[in-house]
């Protein structure tokens, strides 16, 4: 992009200010970037010298739900995803209360609950969605619903651990991968 002044930060993608809910850390990043404004010549590319403090496993807040422990009563996607929805709903509601109503869900026209039902029907019928533009915002909203429910309790969460729970343990994570396979095998869908 060739910005005239750039501060390189060693933080994970998606976290340019380093650490959520840590105003002091964020201010340090901002001031380091603003200090570049008064350099004599450029372009300037400077390293931010501090990593985000590593979260020890013992310090990280535990996810309130363990999907791995949930016995599968039925094999249909409708049953599996509805089951997760029921388990997560109270945690999502707690998240809304704790975050003063803030949620990232809302990009799709439908609610996460409606989108989960639609997705489950598609998976059970082994179909791709008729309107492909529905899929991305729907999945993003459902992911927001899951992550906000999983982090409803106050505390710091390890993002790698959350990713593991979502992709390796939840039925919804598996559902996305199965939908990918359905797209791959659909003759009328081009990549």
């Amino acid at each position: 992009m060739q910005p005239p002044r750039a501060l390189w930060v060693p933080f994970p993608l998606g976290r340019p200010l380093g650490k959520p809910a840590d105003p002091a850390f964020q201010i340090n990043v901002i001031l380091a970037a603003l200090a570049l404004l008064h350099r004599d010549r450029g372009p300037v590319l400077e390293d931010f010298p501090h990593d985000v403090p590593t979260l020890e496993a013992t310090e990280a807040a535990a996810c309130p739900v363990s999907f791995a422990a949930i016995p599968e009563q039925e094999n249909s996607w409708q049953a599996r995803l509805s089951n997760e929805l029921t388990i997560l709903q109270p945690w999502y509601e707690l998240s809304l209360r704790r975050r003063n109503g803030r949620t990232l869900a809302g990009v799709s026209k439908e609610t996460p609950q409606e989108n989960i039902q639609t997705l489950a029907t598609l998976l059970d019928e082994h179909k791709t969605p008729g309107d492909i533009s529905w899929l991305k915002p729907a999945v993003e909203d459902i992911k927001a619903f899951y992550y906000e429910a999983l982090t409803a309790q106050p505390g710091e969460y390890d993002s790698d651990a959350l990713q593991h729970v979502f992709w390796q343990e939840s039925s919804f994570g598996e559902a996305i991968l199965v939908l990918h396979d359905i797209f791959d095998s659909a003759p009328d869908v081009q990549s």
Partner: peptide, 14 residues
């Protein structure tokens, strides 16, 4: 391809 859980916690992160 990037983390959104931090933004979900704090808009100021982004």
């Amino acid at each position: 391809n990037f983390d959104k859980t931090g933004f979900s916690e704090d808009v100021n992160l982004v």
